[in-house]
Design a protein around this nucleic acid. Sequence first.
DNA 1: AAATTGACGTGACCGGAGTCACAATAGCTG
DNA 2: CAGCTATTGTGACTCCGGTCACGTCAATTT
Lengths: 232, 232
Amino acid sequence: MQVTPELLSRFDLLKPLPREALEQLAPQASLARFARRAVALRAGVREDKVCFLFEGRLQGVGFTIDGREVGLYFVEPGDFCGELALFDDNPQPEFVIATTAASVVYVARNPLREVMLNTSTVSNTIGRKLAERVRQMTMQRTLLGLSNIPQRVCGQLYLLINEAHRKAESSEIANPPTHMEIAIMLNLSRETVTRVFQALQSRRIVRRDGPSRLIVTDLASLRRFAQGEEEL
Amino acid sequence: MQVTPELLSRFDLLKPLPREALEQLAPQASLARFARRAVALRAGVREDKVCFLFEGRLQGVGFTIDGREVGLYFVEPGDFCGELALFDDNPQPEFVIATTAASVVYVARNPLREVMLNTSTVSNTIGRKLAERVRQMTMQRTLLGLSNIPQRVCGQLYLLINEAHRKAESSEIANPPTHMEIAIMLNLSRETVTRVFQALQSRRIVRRDGPSRLIVTDLASLRRFAQGEEEL
DNA sequence: AAATTGACGTGACCGGAGTCACAATAGCTG
DNA sequence: CAGCTATTGTGACTCCGGTCACGTCAATTT
């Protein structure tokens, strides 16, 4: 599948690049479509490409030896993943799979690496992204330290809102993760997540609006639960 | 406390720098000594310095809202931490505290940032370091996904060996973390870690040699437990 | 329209890690 | 050496989240 320079320039990371750079990258890029649960990047192998998400949603996941899934982060359209390959030759540490049908652009690692080294805006952006990823993982790890389980779930929910907008007293999450997806991010069973959601719904703190919208009616209460100021 | 260019050049990251660069950094650097449990870098604040460890050992830790400690990673002599400040202005995500008496060199963030941008070997090294950190955190997160607790402890133990040398059939860990330190890295209670160690010792898989040396007598068995091929 | 699938909901049971309360060392320090 | 503190070692009890075994419901597929 042919990739045009125009398509590449629709990604924030590549937008500032001069035309020539894009034309250099485009022939080495390819387009792919994925069904739900398809694998975009493999763990343990030295991937020779970086994955830019065009539409849909991806998730970084690990697998423990006993086959249990471990949720790490989400990738939203316009963003990219697999950027570790730009820094060294070590393998990709986690899988990236599609949580919905998705279309992505793969850009070959080596030319992109060249571009990164020559373009300070690109290397800055990638550096910031990596730094943000470390912060993200640290927060996620801190969440796992909470022994109060409802609090852990509320904390995750609150983080999911932050990414969008957390100002108002109520908020909403479009295309929320399934209970199962939340469970594997938090080291919990799916049932436990369901039970916490039931408790939140009965207290009118969250509400479902159709399958693809979760509305947080009472953001202040959610935050209090997340902070542990109040017990669920 | 005065810091000489020579002192700076003893760190791998700064070694390749030309003399002038070191002389530029040195006046903006300072030396500090810490007692056990002292704080080297604070979470939540925009630290304006990067911390180079000269001797002792540091640990990155988070604190959950309920005061529980969360162990993230160790810093060994010659290495550095707090490098996220070089990428953006967001706050340091985790505390860094001394697990033993330690001496460190603080280097001011801004001049170091300049040096990084101008010296590709430095930016490459820091990039690799950050990438390695992400891999490290991913592995650690995967460990936490293990529901079999002895397996989790063995996995951590195995990781600790890797950092040093994992080739031979027996190995040793110098200055091993205390049970408590292992516990907070694995989201476990101290007692649970102690019990696992008791089990490992009674099976002659590990052995203590004084306070500061832990000897792994049977590395193959340890690996089997870590991989879940055998139950403890 | 029937059948299949995947997400969500719910109860009962149980095992195992946390917690608490101590004891026993082992290093330090004065 | 005595005294203090940190670390390790152990038992008893409790509780709570995992597991299992269902049922419901909506969306797709055939």
